[in-house]
Amino acid sequence: MDIGDMRREFESEGLDRDHLDDSPIRQFEHWFHDAREAGILEPNAMSLATAGSDSQPDLRTVLLKYFDDKGFVFYTNYGSRKAGEIDQNPKAALLFPWIGLNRQVIIQGPVEKVSKAESLRYFSSRPRGSQIGAWVSEQSKVITSRGLLEQKVAEIKRRFSQGDVPLPSFWGGYRVVPERIEFWQGRPSRLHDRFEYLRQDDGWLIQRLQP
């Protein structure tokens, strides 16, 4: 199937250095607010790219759950494929594709586990069904049928029928600590605006990139 003629013009006001906050985290917060206000479906959905010791890139969509000056946090099973790759090569890239606003944000940097207290705080806020799901799934492992998964759900529900569902020892958060953040704004004729923030010892270097 030849889809080479699929294209559209990106109409926007553009992006100038004067429009940017000196902090990429505050700039991200501004754009994230815009995405929510525009009704972008799940604006916290982000592509997470990792690569293990074999250097084979891997990619999936996860949900951003927290961000601040220290980094961008998501949660997962510590036995999952992504967790194994992070253990082997603790670096990652994130992509927020806010296409409806002709925008995207790329974040790159090292990855670290969040504290158990942070994981517990978030886990305790999840719906009970999601908490049980965390206990049930040996994420990324082969399973022969969905029926086995449903049997395990029933087992875990019985196990924790009284009281709160505890935090599994094999589940928690990771924080991507940004060293580079790029803000991309689509413009007509593919002459897009791109600005990158590079972490320096004394702050952030901000520079415009060619489209």
Rank of each mutant, 00 (worst) to 15 (best):
I3N: 13
G4S: 15
G4Q: 15
R7W: 00
R8G: 07
R8F: 12
E9H: 08
E11Y: 04
S12Q: 00
S12F: 00
E13Q: 15
E13H: 12
R17W: 05
D21R: 10
D21I: 08
S23H: 09
I25G: 08
I25Y: 05
R26V: 02
F28T: 03
E29R: 15
H33L: 13
H33K: 11
A35V: 09
A35G: 12
R36Y: 13
E37I: 14
A38K: 11
L41K: 08
L41T: 04
L41P: 05
L41G: 07
S47A: 10
T50V: 04
T50P: 07
A51M: 11
G52N: 00
S53N: 06
S53H: 11
S55T: 15
P57Y: 08
R60I: 09
Y66L: 11
F67E: 01
K70E: 11
G71V: 02
Y78I: 07
G79H: 11
S80G: 10
R81Q: 13
R81Y: 11
K82T: 01
G84Q: 05
G84T: 02
G84Y: 04
I86V: 15
D87N: 09
N89H: 09
K91S: 07
F96P: 01
I99G: 01
R103V: 01
R103K: 12
R103C: 02
Q108S: 15
G109L: 09
V111W: 02
E112K: 07
K113H: 14
K113S: 12
S115T: 10
S115A: 08
K116C: 07
A117Y: 09
S119F: 03
L120Q: 14
F123N: 03
F123K: 11
S125I: 05
R128E: 00
G129R: 06
G129T: 07
G129N: 04
Q131D: 10
I132A: 10
I132G: 08
G133F: 03
A134I: 04
W135Q: 03
V136Q: 05
E138C: 05
Q139C: 08
S140Y: 10
I143L: 15
I143K: 15
T144C: 09
G147P: 05
L148H: 11
L148V: 14
L149E: 02
E150I: 08
E150Q: 10
E150K: 14
V153M: 11
E155H: 09
I156K: 14
I156D: 02
I156C: 12
R159P: 06
F160M: 07
F160Y: 13
S161W: 08
D164M: 10
V165P: 15
P168T: 13
G172M: 12
G173E: 02
R175K: 10
V177P: 11
V177F: 09
P178A: 06
E179V: 14
E182T: 12
F183H: 03
Q185F: 07
G186C: 04
S189H: 14
R190D: 00
H192G: 09
D193N: 06
Y197R: 08
L198M: 08
R199S: 02
Q200C: 06
Q200L: 04
D202H: 05
D202R: 01
Q207G: 03
R208V: 01
R208W: 01
Q210R: 14
Q210S: 08
P211M: 00
P211D: 00
P211I: 00
